[in-house]
């Protein structure tokens, strides 16, 4: 009896890296994300695109459990985020931290290993070596011992990416890694994203530049408080979908949100 060939011949459905069901997020009674439902298969470079205030950052934060959900749930490889933290890497926006903080580039990258180390265990030689490799991957090996303020904006961004690499994850969430970086950094980040995809990782990137979105990514999530489209770039990144996402300043959703926030007591 041969079981193996029959399994191999069966067409295997692609694994789903991220699943979001009925997700709604509200800040002070004002909804910022409504009823998001999406699925993204493993191994995609996905960009999250939408106008300012569309809830792109909130979508990432909700996925990572950083903001409370009004409803819905998020699954990474079929299980809740809480159980899958070790599979996830995170690159927050660069402006969210104080770059005068007294640490070196290597110190910051080492922070990526803290999650797996667990309580009170100090990073040792192995973690230091691994952090160095990650810095090398973003082409900053020579800057390991610089205090982080002595780095350029693009280099700081790459330190953040190296820290996410140090998390050794399968799914990455990056909040505007291309914002305000020089051409060298943009190139380095792009190469890194492609390397991650070849290694079978899934990457979600909040992206502002519609010109390059189609060229850099193979999956697109169009967002403007609600989900307008989610799918492969070729079929989803269409004029019609973009118009739905960006067109019409005051959509019916805005008005509804205003009405809800007026009605509820502060």
């Amino acid at each position: 009896m041969s079981v193996a060939p029959s399994i191999a011949s069966k067409k295997v459905a692609p694994t789903t890296a991220l699943e979001i069901h009925d997700l709604t997020v509200a800040y002070r009674h004002k909804p910022v994300l409504w009823d998001i439902d999406l699925e993204v298969p493993e191994g995609k470079l996905a960009c999250i695109v939408g106008p300012n205030g569309a809830g792109k950052t909130t979508l990432i934060k909700a996925t990572l459990g950083l903001v409370p959900l009004a409803s819905g749930n998020v699954k990474i490889y079929g299980r809740p985020y809480r159980e899958q933290r070790h599979l996830v890497g995170y690159v927050p926006q660069r402006e969210t931290v104080d770059w005068d903080f007294p640490v070196t580039a290597l110190d910051v990258v080492k922070m990526g290993t803290y999650g797996k180390l667990g309580w009170f265990r100090r990073p040792g030689a192995r973690e230091r070596e691994w952090a160095r490799e990650c810095l090398d991957q973003v082409e900053l090996a020579d800057f390991a011992h610089r205090q982080i303020r002595q780095l350029s904006g693009g280099q700081q961004q790459r330190v953040f990416l190296a820290r996410a690499l140090a998390q050794d994850a399968k799914v990455y969430f990056m909040d505007e890694p291309f914002a305000g970086v020089d051409a060298a950094t943009e190139g380095a980040i792009l190469r890194l994203l492609q390397d991650l995809r070849s290694a079978g990782k899934t990457v979600f990137v909040v992206h502002h530049d519609l010109q390059t979105a189609e060229e850099y990514f193979d999956w697109v999530i169009l967002l403007n408080m609600r989900l307008l489209a989610c799918g492969p770039v070729e079929t989803t990144f269409t004029r019609e979908n973009l118009h739905k996402t960006y067109g019409g300043r005051l959509t019916i959703l805005d008005q509804a949100a205003e009405a809800v926030s007026r009605r509820s007591p502060e």
Binding site: V88, P92, T96, D98, M111, G115, R163
Partner: peptide, 12 residues
């Protein structure tokens, strides 16, 4: 102290 959101995402 450096990056509270990253710390929270890591599960601290």
């Amino acid at each position: 102290s450096f990056d509270p959101e990253f710390a929270a995402a890591q599960g601290w």
